[in-house]
Simulated scan of single mutants.
Amino acid sequence: MEDRVPAMNAAAETDVELVPALVDVARDEYPDLDVSGLLSQVRELALQAADRCSNIESTSQKVQTLNQFLFVECGFKGNHDEFYDPRNCYINEVMERRLGIPISLAVLQLECARACDLALEGVSFPGHFLVRVPMDGGLLVMDPFHRGRPMDVDELRQRARPHMGDRDIDDQQLLNLLSPASNRAIVARILRNLKGVYTEQEDFARALRCADRLIRFDASQAEDWRDRGLLYLQLGVGQRAGEDLARYLQLRPDAGDADAVREAMIDAAKSRVTRH
């Protein structure tokens, strides 16, 4: 199959506009953000990309031109030195610093591709976010973190293997992993990245902010209720911690960590008594 895999159906339409949703996320950290100015910057970037691709018919040439524009001419690149810097997740910082992680760079790649009439899609691949584009009856899969470098099937399997119990991955499993990500899924993954970074830094207030937005974004994900409950517990908000953890157990009564969550609920109840 060389560097392409069989094509799949496009992602379903969602009611979330990707860039405006990410600008809204950025306002949590940057309340004085110039929203209209930032949206104009992204729009101008996309229009410049469209201008570069305006006379190109070939999909492969459009891809090359887009990557050349974004990653060479404009200088966007992966932040290898400080991968876990939260600024890599905020679209205003990515635009200003020209640094990001795979998913935030992919967002700009997707926005520019849309202006170029290029059917680029995001892929919530295990580990690092990727992008894909239909080409010659198959898929060209690229890595935004490395200037849109194409990836072959063997590399994709190797990348996925540690996240799949270190098992061999057949073609169908790989195709499933390469399913296109909705805008909603992209925003949620960025929020989870931020939540993880802030939790690791023990910045529980910011982590809680991300967890809260995730639940408001999609209240059906049990793990988000658990995580928000544990963050409330870290911050000494016992009542809300207990409520969220109870909600998690309602959604996942047979969860593998159910016993640990019940112990956390006891701690939450103690916290409530102590604070009174």
Rank of each mutant, 00 (worst) to 15 (best):
A255F: 03
D32E: 14
G242M: 01
Q173E: 15
G256I: 08
A255R: 01
Q158S: 09
N67S: 04
R4I: 11
D166V: 02
Y232S: 02
W225L: 03
Y84T: 06
L233K: 02
H276Y: 13
E223R: 12
Q48D: 13
G238W: 00
C112N: 05
P126C: 02
S179G: 11
L110Q: 07
P134M: 08
R27T: 13
G242A: 14
V153L: 12
W225C: 02
L39T: 10
L235E: 02
N183E: 12
E111H: 15
R189P: 01
E263C: 11
L191M: 15
A11K: 01
D218N: 14
Q64E: 14
M164V: 13
I169D: 03
L120I: 10
I91G: 00
A160Q: 05
I190P: 00
Q239N: 08
Q61K: 12
P162M: 04
V133Q: 03
L175N: 06
L105Y: 02
L18C: 09
I186R: 02
V131F: 03
L130S: 04
E243A: 14
A11L: 03
S182D: 04
D259H: 12
Q61L: 15
C116S: 09
R87Y: 06
L108R: 05
D227P: 05
V261L: 09
D212P: 04
P126N: 05
G75Y: 04
L175S: 14
N55E: 15
D227L: 02
A160F: 10
A115V: 06
A113N: 03
C210A: 09
L249R: 07
R157S: 05
A26Q: 05
Q234Y: 06
A11Y: 00
A207M: 06
R147K: 14
L174G: 09
M95C: 13
A185L: 05
V123L: 06
D254R: 11
V107Q: 05
F83A: 07
I91D: 00
F145W: 00
V63M: 10
W225S: 03
L108V: 09
A188D: 06
L251N: 06
A115W: 02
D203L: 11
W225P: 02
T65C: 13
F76A: 01
S182L: 08
V42C: 11
L33Y: 07
